[in-house]
Amino acid sequence: MSDVRWLTETEQQTWRAYMTANVEFSAYIDRQMRRDSGMPMAYYEILVRLSEADGRRLRMSELAEASLSSRSRLSHAVSALEKNGWVVRRPADGDRRGWVCELTDEGFTALAAAAPGHVTAVREKLFDVLTPEQLDALRDIGRAISAGLRQECEEARAEDVCDEEPC
């Protein structure tokens, strides 16, 4: 293991600070969403992606990619959202293999009710605690990390096709 590039003390501190902030922030936002809206953050993200899509519908594969969900995670979430009456899943028009998920009016209403609390929590715990320069750096850091992972993420998504059955 002599070829391992071990982290320096400063890199360790940076890594741990990043991981702690990421885990704590994600957990805080998920708790806020569950407490105030009765839905986990993952469900909110799916509803947001559908609300922004043309006709408030997406193919399941597009929804999985947009919401950064695996096939199994998306399937579980969409099933729960269907039970709430917030989405419907149906075969894609003209494609016997494809499936589409559509946001219902009830789902849009639930999303609209959840949005103010979510935006307030994000503003208070992220935007209000950072300077404009830190926010610029955070945006650039997020983009750089995503760019560095792009190929691996695309390969993983290619292995996780979600369009051929009602996942």
Rank of each mutant, 00 (worst) to 15 (best):
M1A: 12
M1C: 06
S2L: 10
R5D: 15
W6H: 11
L7E: 09
L7R: 09
T8W: 06
E9G: 10
E9K: 06
E9I: 12
E9H: 08
T10G: 09
T10S: 11
T10D: 11
E11N: 01
Q13R: 08
Q13H: 08
Q13M: 08
Q13N: 05
T14V: 15
R16T: 07
A17N: 11
Y18L: 12
M19L: 09
A21P: 00
A21Y: 09
V23Q: 02
F25P: 03
S26G: 14
S26C: 04
A27G: 07
Y28V: 05
R31V: 10
R31L: 13
Q32E: 13
Q32A: 12
R35P: 07
D36S: 11
S37Y: 01
G38V: 06
G38E: 03
M41E: 14
M41T: 13
A42P: 00
Y43A: 15
E45L: 09
I46Y: 01
V48W: 04
R49N: 13
S51M: 03
S51A: 15
E52H: 08
A53L: 08
D54Y: 02
R56Q: 13
R57Q: 15
R59T: 13
M60N: 14
M60Y: 07
S61W: 02
E62G: 08
A64W: 01
A66L: 00
S69H: 13
S69Q: 15
S70N: 08
R73M: 04
L74P: 03
L74N: 07
S75F: 03
S75C: 04
S75R: 02
A77P: 00
V78H: 00
S79Q: 11
A80R: 06
E82P: 01
K83I: 01
V88F: 05
R89I: 12
R90H: 12
R97K: 11
G98D: 12
G98I: 01
C101T: 15
E102R: 06
E102M: 07
E106M: 10
E106Q: 10
T109A: 15
A112K: 13
A112P: 00
A112S: 14
A114L: 09
A114F: 08
G117S: 09
T120G: 00
T120F: 13
A121H: 04
A121D: 05
A121Q: 07
A121W: 03
A121V: 00
E124R: 15
E124H: 12
K125T: 15
K125N: 15
F127M: 01
D128R: 12
D128C: 08
D128V: 02
V129H: 04
V129A: 01
V129E: 06
T131A: 06
T131D: 02
P132M: 04
Q134K: 05
Q134L: 04
L135A: 07
A137V: 06
R139T: 11
R139G: 05
R139Y: 07
D140L: 06
I141M: 11
G142N: 00
A144S: 14
G148P: 05
R150K: 13
Q151R: 15
E152K: 14
C153M: 11
C153I: 09
E154C: 07
A156D: 06
R157G: 02
E159V: 04
D160A: 01
D160L: 01
E164S: 10
E165N: 04
E165V: 11
